[in-house]
Amino acid sequence: MDRGQGTKKRTLELASIATAIVIWEIVARIIDIKYILPSFTSVVSAFIGLVQDGELYRDIMTSLNYFVLGIGLAILVGIPIGTMMGWFKSIDRAVDPIIEMIRPIPPLAWIPFAILWFGLNKYAAGFVIFVGAVFPILINTYTGFKNTPKVLVESGKVLGCVKNKDIILRIALPSALPSIATGIRVGMGVGWMCVVAAEIFGVSTYGIGRKIWFWNDLHHMDMVLTYMLVLGMIALIIDRAFRYLVQVWWLKWQSGVVV
């Protein structure tokens, strides 16, 4: 029964994707100007070519390198600051105005300073991704800590967990984890979007975003579209993998809560 439902759902999903592809191909053939809308078949053959000569692999690894750098830093900075702000009222009051002033600035606006501070290298790209990812992580960590149920903190105190450090690490942190996981997930989404922008200014000859601009400069719109789809697919894979890991390893104690 359950399995039957699943198969049916899967069939519907595949049918929907197949329909979209067929329509895309038909539209592309009707328009028949390859730089206006490259056809599905041309994108597939471009994709196969890129996989075969290993170019795509190198691009993906380059972009992931920036991404890991940016997200890693965002986690290292966002969680501790979010924790401090969520737990200590005075720190919240002191830091919050600064955060609220910087937060609305679009990450891409940091590109000029990223270049000046870090140079044209992966750290500049990582920094732009960091700026995109850090605030969702910070804010969600903050919310998670702030919403730690009082009864859990008091239970802990009664059970001998009285030092601030112990309460934070053993009670507030695990209690905030679902919220932190949401923050990381949102942060990774925003961070990945910054990858394309971070690569415009050309810190390397490789990278998915870089290749979008490279082929755009050469008007190879089939390549541009191929890299765009790769960008989307990787975002999807990262998101699904993270959700899976979180549910299986990290937050299996949660009942039916979708991060």
């Binding site: 270049i115 000046l116 140079g119 044209l120 200014f201 050309g202 810190v203 390397s204 000859t205 601009w213 490279f214 400069d217």
Partner: peptide
């Protein structure tokens, strides 16, 4: 040009700034 050095594509104004700031 792909392995021995890095060629960065950009407009003239950006390139001048990049040279002046030591980024290229």
């Amino acid at each position: 040009p792909k392995e021995d050095l890095t060629i960065l594509g950009m407009g003239g104004a950006d390139a001048k700034t990049a040279l002046a700031s030591g980024n290229v």
